[in-house]
Computed example of a mutant assay.
Amino acid sequence: MLLLKLIHLCILLFFVIYTKGDWCNKEKVDKLRKLLQCSGWKNLNDINFIQYYGKKYYPHNLLETQTNGNNCEQKTRGLTVFLGCTYIKVLKNLFTSVISNILQNCQENDNLNGIIWTEELINIISILIVPMATLMKGAIEALDNIHNYPLTILNKFFMISPLLEKIENILDELKEQNISRDDLTTYYSILQMVRLCSKNIIIVLQVQIKSYCEFVPCDTNDLWDEWSQEYEAFIDQDEKLLFIKFLTKKIKNYIKTVIKENYFQLGFKFDPITEETFIPTPTEPIDPELEFKETFEYL
């Protein structure tokens, strides 16, 4: 009888210890509910489904199922992968299409144009892409932290967090490069560095897509073709603007839209002092438009 009671006690302790993490407390449930009330989540239409550990998750199920303590953990994990795939699509659009073609043009142009293209590329990465990567990484980690066992803490290689960190680190590598128009080899060195980083980023993105993401089929041209055609129409109107300057404006507008729709309208907030992303408490007001204006001025 005593042995039987001990067995029952052990089973009970096992159940408490190993299932406690399957439940979110009220604070976390309320925080996730408040986050999902933000309008931006319903506008994320690029993902057909995501997969994690062999299981498929469909966006409408993740977003429309009522959040409670029992499903909060699973929803948090699924939404984190869903958000990661959304960001993967953005990075794929930029690196496999635009950045790759800019690098090609940097190499193929004559010295003066090659210099101008390279300088613009450095500005695009430093001023636009790196800050965007910082916001993306922060959003993924902030959402993942709702889970009782955040994978971005337990496993630093979770999804695209390491990739986003690598993109952030490109800025440090660029700062170490001293370019001079009197020494063209400095331009060649920086192009080689950016080309290698871009190539590695594209490889990682392809692996991530295969592992996690199934995108909605899309018949539209990639960004480079779309913007090239737009530029041809632009110069036909006798508007004089270098193609790379035109591209810089298009990339800036594209990234501003991404930050607005895929970050602030999803309910994330950015602290420009600590450069950290956080999710407001359920009682905090969320004004995506105001947050976007203030933060993008900082960026």
Rank of each mutant, 00 (worst) to 15 (best):
N71V: 06
L205S: 11
K293W: 01
T274M: 09
F14D: 04
I235A: 06
A133N: 06
D238R: 09
L196D: 03
L4A: 14
E168K: 04
E214T: 09
Q66C: 14
V98N: 02
S189Y: 02
L290Q: 01
T118A: 11
N148Y: 00
L112N: 08
D46Y: 00
D222L: 04
N70H: 12
K249S: 08
C24I: 01
L241R: 09
I7L: 06
Y53I: 09
T281W: 09
F49D: 15
K240W: 07
I11M: 02
L36K: 05
Q229R: 11
I127V: 12
Q192S: 09
E168H: 01
E168A: 13
F158H: 03
T186H: 00
T80L: 01
F296I: 05
R33Y: 14
T248M: 12
F234K: 13
R33D: 13
Y149M: 13
Q74M: 09
T248N: 11
V258H: 02
F243I: 12
K260L: 07
L4F: 09
I203W: 09
K34N: 04
L36C: 03
Y58S: 13
I255N: 00
E64H: 14
G69P: 01
T220Y: 05
I201M: 02
T283Q: 14
L13D: 02
A139E: 02
E294R: 15
G267W: 06
L299A: 07
P272T: 15
E64C: 15
F264Y: 05
E275S: 09
P150K: 01
N111W: 04
D30Q: 10
R33N: 10
L35A: 11
Y298G: 15
L36D: 05
L299V: 14
E291S: 11
L2M: 08
G267V: 05
S189D: 03
E214M: 15
E108C: 14
N113G: 09
P285K: 04
V81Q: 07
P288R: 00
I160H: 05
I286H: 06
D172G: 13
K199S: 14
A139T: 04
F243Q: 11
G84A: 01
N221G: 09
P282L: 10
L247M: 03
C197N: 11
S211R: 14
N45L: 10
F234P: 15
I88C: 09
P217F: 13
G54Y: 12
I279T: 07
K175C: 04
Q237S: 11
P282W: 04
K293Q: 12
K260I: 06
D238E: 11
F270Y: 10
L164A: 03
W224S: 11
I201L: 06
A133E: 07
Q107N: 11
I201W: 00
N68D: 15
S126F: 15
L191T: 00
M193Q: 12
D271A: 12
F95I: 02
F234D: 07
Y254A: 00
T283P: 14
L290Y: 03
T281Y: 11
S100F: 08
E64I: 12
F234V: 07
N68M: 15
I235M: 08
N155G: 10
K166V: 00
T96G: 04
E108K: 15
L241G: 07
D271E: 12
N169L: 15
I167R: 00
W23Q: 09
K166M: 08
E291N: 12
Y87W: 06
I259D: 07
F234L: 14
F270C: 11
Y212S: 15
